[in-house]
Simulated scan of single mutants.
Amino acid sequence: MKRQSLLATLSALTVMTLGGVGYAAHRRSKGRNPYYSGPVTDHFDGLQFHGVDQPADKVLGDILRWKRERAGVAWPASFPSPFDDTPPERVEGLRVSFIGHASYLFQVGRRNILVDPVYAQRASPLSVAGPKRVNPPGIAFDALPPIDVVLITHNHYDHLDGPTVARLWQRHQPLIVAPLGNDSILRSFDDTMHVETCDWGQSVDLGGGLTLHMTPANHWSARGLNDKRMALWCSYVLTSPSGVVYHSGDTGLADGAIFRDARDRFGPPRLATLPIGAYEPRWFMKGQHMNPADAVVAAGLLGADQMLGHHWGTFRLTDEGIKEPVEALAAACAVGGIPPERFVALRPGQVWETR
C-alpha cells in the first residue's frame, strides 16, 4: 500500500476507534468545509459547527493519557440477544423495535421510520479493523417492512453507515433526513440519493399528522482527521397522533438545557429514547456521551412517560464492561424512584409498543 493511502486509512480508523468517542486532530482542509457552505449562524462560524457550550476539542495529549491510564473491561466476542423481531408491515399506533447500538425502527401512524440504521459488521471505515459487532441486527435487513423515512443524527461510523443507507435507498426510495452537510457524505455512496437536510429548529412534515423536528444535541462530528465538526449533528422530536417521541442521538447532558427546551416546546414525551453507554472514562467522555445517571436526569428534565436505553452492548467503543450500563441504569433508576419498567435498556430485536 502506498504511504499516502496507508496514512489516510490509519487516519480514518483512528477517528472511528478514538474520534467516534471524542477525539480528532485539529488539521483542517486548508480552511475549506468539504460538506457544507452556508451563512454564519449562532452555531456555524463559516467553517465548523458548534453548540452553545461546545466542549473543547480533545487533543493528542488527551488520547495519550487515556491510553496510558486505560483500565477497560474486556468484552466477550459474542453477546447474543434473546430477541429477534419480524415487524408487521404497518402499525396504526406506536411500535418501536431496537435493531442494535443506536439503530431503531419506529412504526407510527402507518409510517415506518429507521433511525441511524447500521447493518455493517464493523462501525469503521474498514472491513477488517475497528469496533466489531458482538450480536447481529435485531431485525434482519430482508425482514424490514417498507421504509418510508430514514433519519441520520450525525456522521460517526456507528451512526452513519453509508452502504446500508444506499441499499435502503435503492430498495425503498425513502425520504432521508439528515443535519446540514451530511447529504454530501451520503451521496458519495449513491449519487442518485435524495437527502433533505435541516438545521436545528427546522421541521419536516411526514404526512398523516406526523411532523419531524430537528433539535440540538451536545455532541460533534467527523469522518476523518480533517473534517472535525464540519457537518451538523442533532436530536429529533416526532410529534404524532400517538404522542411526542424524543430521540436524542448521541449527546452529553451538559446543563440539561436541550432537554428542558424540548419539553417547553413540544410538551413531555410519550417516549424518549436515550443513550446509556460509551461513557468511560468519564473525564474524557462526559461532554459528548451521557452515562446512565445522566440519562435518568435527562428523562426527568424531559418529563418523559417511558424511556428506552440504547448505545450499549453491540459495538465496544469505550472502557465500561458490556453489562455495566444495565447495572448502572438500574441503580440510577432506584435512586431516582423510577420503576424499572419505565426505563428499559433494550437488546437487539426487543420491541416496545403502546398498549
Rank of each mutant, 00 (worst) to 15 (best):
P131R: 11
A24W: 01
V91D: 11
F284G: 01
F106E: 03
G303H: 08
S37E: 13
G209A: 07
V335D: 14
S37H: 12
V177T: 10
R110G: 07
S221R: 10
G267V: 10
G349T: 01
G349V: 01
G100E: 08
A222N: 09
D148I: 03
L210V: 13
R229K: 06
A74W: 03
A295L: 10
D319E: 15
R316N: 08
P39S: 12
N33S: 06
L212I: 09
L346E: 06
L301D: 10
H219D: 04
G208E: 05
G61R: 13
E353D: 13
P268N: 04
A24T: 02
R90M: 06
G93A: 15
R265W: 07
D158K: 00
S184I: 13
G38P: 10
A334D: 14
Q54K: 02
T314A: 11
A254N: 14
E280I: 07
D264W: 01
R68N: 10
A120P: 03
Y36E: 12
V165W: 01
D250C: 13
P292C: 07
D84A: 14
T251Y: 05
D183H: 15
Y119D: 00
G249Q: 10
F315Q: 00
A332H: 02
L302A: 06
I63Y: 08
V59F: 05
G209H: 04
N33V: 10
A178G: 04
P340C: 05
T164H: 04
A24Q: 07
E69Y: 12
M285V: 03
V297C: 09
G321N: 06
S240P: 04
V108T: 13
F49W: 08
C234S: 14
K30Q: 14
S203E: 13
T215L: 14
Y246M: 07
S242I: 11
R187T: 09
H43A: 03
G61F: 07
M290K: 02
W233E: 00
H194G: 09
A231V: 09
Q121E: 12
G277V: 03
H213Q: 09
G321H: 05
H159Q: 14
A8P: 00
V91M: 15
F79P: 01
V165L: 01
V59A: 08
G109I: 08
F106A: 03
L151C: 06
V351L: 00
T192P: 04
P275V: 00
Y36M: 13
R223V: 05
A272S: 15
V296Q: 04
D294N: 11
V134F: 02
I185E: 14
A129S: 15
V296P: 04
Y279E: 08
V73P: 04
F189H: 15
G19N: 03
R223F: 00
R28M: 10
R28Q: 12
S5L: 06
D255Q: 12
A8Q: 02
S242A: 15
Q202L: 10
P339C: 02
E280W: 11
S235D: 03
M1S: 14
P34R: 11
V150M: 02
V59L: 08
P136G: 08
F259S: 02
E69Q: 14
H219R: 06
Y36I: 12
L64A: 04
R111Q: 14
F98C: 07
R260M: 12
I338V: 15
G22R: 01
L210A: 07
R270A: 15
R263M: 05
I139D: 04
K132P: 05
H213L: 11
T86R: 15
S81N: 01
V165E: 00
V150R: 01
